[in-house]
Design a protein around this nucleic acid. Sequence first.
DNA 1: TAGATTGTTAATCGATTAACAATC
DNA 2: TAGATTGTTAATCGATTAACAATC
Lengths: 213, 213
Amino acid sequence: MQEEDYKSSLPLPTIRRYPTYLREIKEMITNGVTHISSAVLAEKLGLDHVLTRKDLAMVGVPGRPRHGYPAKELEAAMVRALGWDNTNDAALIGVGSLGQALLGYTGFKEHNLSISAAFDTDPRKVGKTFHGVTVQPISELCSYIKVQKLHLGILTVPKTVAQECAEKLIAAGVVGIWNFTPVQLSVPPEVTVQNVDLAESLAVLSHTIAHDI
Amino acid sequence: MQEEDYKSSLPLPTIRRYPTYLREIKEMITNGVTHISSAVLAEKLGLDHVLTRKDLAMVGVPGRPRHGYPAKELEAAMVRALGWDNTNDAALIGVGSLGQALLGYTGFKEHNLSISAAFDTDPRKVGKTFHGVTVQPISELCSYIKVQKLHLGILTVPKTVAQECAEKLIAAGVVGIWNFTPVQLSVPPEVTVQNVDLAESLAVLSHTIAHDI
DNA sequence: TAGATTGTTAATCGATTAACAATC
DNA sequence: TAGATTGTTAATCGATTAACAATC
């Protein structure tokens, strides 16, 4: 959570907006656009243009007055800032319905994320192939991750075994865990956990419609 | 987005934390706890106890010094604040791998959310049953939603048809859309859209591990 | 040159944290 | 009573918005 050298760490809200910018930038490039103005980009995404300019400033690609930002350079810098520039191979634990959905999700390619291994305890699942990935028994997890030098784990197991599986991932050398379980994992400080909690999102939606009607 | 009468609208970060509190509170109740102190609750979730006290204050259930907050009342009030007190029936459009995973997710029961209908254009899917819900053709969507008076739609379609499907939901009378597509939907102001964008979450994770290593 | 567009500096706003008072 | 715990008021912090300057 600490950095000194150069500003390696951007504001969280900014980082969260980058993927959306990136999609739009890519589409504009496809349409032959070479320079993008902050105002146009902001307008397409329903954001304030000053905010967008600030966000863009932080990737370090300067814009030119009257021209805007060079589209390709902007794209490349943003991809780099997100750590999406080199392929990240990830291991997924827990091949239930959510795990299978993630294995089948083609959109991760766009972010250079590739789920290259899947593990499960259920012997009926082990050996089966989902979307090109063959399920291995959990007993293989540690050695496989070490040999393949994976550093990202995707946790889609039942909550009762979430902490235990997280520890296995960490012991194998994973430094980041994408946690789809509703469990508050306890991990050493050098490991990053990113929680995906659908209940949070549903809370905002249902609260709003319940109190707006 | 505006309210006058009484504070119907809570701070977004607070609302997002409520589901986590709620899980913990429920578990403590199961364990026979009748009164919960803000410090204990905060500690279990890794939050500051003052923040937790503020969050709890906003549901309107007073705590007693030396005793804490009454667990059952707290639970009930929080459920009410989230709009999770009466069953919400939702319609899902797009029965791909993500749609199927959501249909199979049992955790929604806990939030009184029930996906009672599913729609798809693919004739090979129509008529099939996934996790107890039979897929209907999109042509049935409007009349079904109107008759059943559903007011929540879950959008899990390919991005190319996202806007179009959202409009169908809105025309049918839906007031809230849970949007799992990476499309910025344009909707009338009385309709609430809550986006679930996995790329946002992945951005934070991959940025952090890329710059921490 | 004039005007569009970026860049920077200051003001506002909301959420969190800190300090303290109230109460059982 | 003393002490634990809630409740309130003020300070801080970070992000967004606004105002203005710089530049092609």
